[in-house]
Write a protein that binds this DNA or RNA. Structure first.
Length: 159
DNA sequence: GCCAACGTTGGC
DNA sequence: GCCAACGTTGGC
């Protein structure tokens, strides 16, 4: 699941502990949340438009699908006048904080890893904010998160 | 800020 | 049902 860290970061999730994944207005992403996710499943938390962009931690699916409340809030930027109250168009999941990685695993590192080849996140042009991860890819990302030999991006000073 | 890639909308 | 126009995403 992707979020812009300026808007909602892994640290924000840690503070909140549980949050509703509001604002998804893409049908495929909605379908993944509504139909594919199972309660208790783990989620990679991805920072998009980050510095760097990459996987920042792990969350897990909390509870059943529920209607995204913002679709009915007139003043809200995610308001959708066409969504019927008795049959909400936009369903979301709640996610619970699990883990914050010591460092974001940069997109560049993910792309360079042969074991992650074919991962949907890494496909050119994909923009889905919610997408699938295979168990093997998931395990590999966790491995990278634990690895001390993680490639350090050139030109980034240590802090 | 730029721009490629993509989803959605709406005219026909 | 096609497709141009438009808006958005997100890396860079």
């Amino acid at each position: 699941m992707k979020s812009e860290p300026d808007v909602f970061s892994i640290d924000d999730l840690k503070k909140a502990r549980v949050t509703g994944w509001e604002g998804v207005r893409n049908f495929q992403a909605r379908n993944y949340m509504r139909d594919s996710m199972k309660e208790g499943e783990l989620v990679l938390f991805y920072h998009s438009n980050g510095d760097p962009s990459g996987v920042a931690g792990v969350a897990k699916v909390h509870g059943a699908p529920i209607p995204d409340p913002t679709q009915f809030q007139k003043k809200h930027e995610y308001y959708d006048a066409t969504s019927p109250k008795d049959d909400p168009r936009w369903m979301m999941r709640q996610v619970e904080f699990v883990e914050r990685f010591d460092a974001v695993i940069p997109l560049e590192v993910l792309k360079a890893d042969p074991k992650l080849s074919g991962m949907p996140l890494l496909q050119k042009g994909q923009r889905l904010s919610v997408q699938t991860v295979t168990p093997a890819h998931f395990a590999r990302v966790l491995e990278l998160a634990k690895s001390k030999t993680q490639v350090v991006k050139k030109g980034v000073s240590p802090s």
